[in-house]
């Protein structure tokens, strides 16, 4: 079976399970919406907040919702110890990593859509004018964040304090994504050139996906 077919099969499973449970989707969307709401009320009544504040709100929502999603996604694989069943299967272990990364990216894309719409509505961010470049930016940032978080989600396995350790490990490594994402969003909203940050994210994604594919097997099997 090719890696593409393996990833598609694993992704199908993740999507079906999520469509039945709906806990990840509802949980992360609700969490992202609450964050935007809190920030909106923090700035309520004053002048329209500066663009860089809006960028910060967007990426804080992405980082926090993403961590929540990753933690729960791997927790689900621990119920019934299904991660072990997948490690026993005659498939490439990198397919496991890539399928988890894509599943998380799809979920985060939905969260980002809701957060972006709420930002536009509540903080009057002019996101719609830059929808295509913003979509590309969010895609690159989400993939970069997911590449790091998926790796640590699997690596923490049955570690006792995994819920605490996951953000402690993921955030320092994904700081470049968050800085680049925030800076690029600000640049886009101000109508400036964001190509440097987009290229930066592209390189970051390539590096961390390569590392993930390379080290996922020893990291997951040592669970």
């Amino acid at each position: 079976m090719s890696v593409v077919r393996e990833v598609a099969l694993l992704l199908w499973k993740d999507v079906v399970v999520e469509l039945r449970a709906k806990e990840l989707l509802f949980g992360t969307v609700f969490f992202g919406a609450i964050l935007v709401l809190i920030f909106a009320f923090a700035f309520y009544g004053g002048e329209r907040p500066p663009v860089d504040v809006m960028s910060g709100v967007l990426w804080v929502a992405i980082a926090l919702s993403g961590t929540l999603a990753i933690g729960r996604a791997f927790e689900r694989e621990r119920e019934g110890n299904t991660l072990r069943a997948l490690l026993l299967a005659p498939i490439s272990r990198s397919s496991l990593y890539l399928s988890k990364l894509i599943a998380i990216a799809l979920l985060m894309a939905i969260v980002e859509l809701v957060v972006a719409v709420l930002l536009s509505f509540m903080l009057h961010a002019s996101l719609i004018e830059h929808v295509l470049s913003l979509a590309a930016l969010l895609l690159l940032g989400t993939v970069g964040f997911g590449a790091v978080a998926s790796l640590f989600g699997a690596a923490l396995g049955r570690a006792r304090s995994r819920d605490v350790l996951l953000p402690l490990l993921v955030y320092p490594l994904s700081v470049p994504v968050l800085i680049a994402g925030t800076r690029a969003t600000t640049a886009l909203l101000l109508g400036e050139d964001a190509s440097f940050w987009l290229k930066f994210l592209l390189v970051y994604d390539a590096i961390f996906i390569s590392i993930g594919v390379w080290v996922f097997e020893p990291v997951a099997v040592s669970e």
Binding site: K13, V16, V17, R20, A21, E79, G80, N81, T82, R84, A85, L88
Partner: peptide, 12 residues
């Protein structure tokens, strides 16, 4: 392998 855990997905 048959183990303590079912290795099956509860939502499927």
């Amino acid at each position: 392998v048959i183990a303590h855990d079912s290795f099956c997905y509860g939502d499927l």
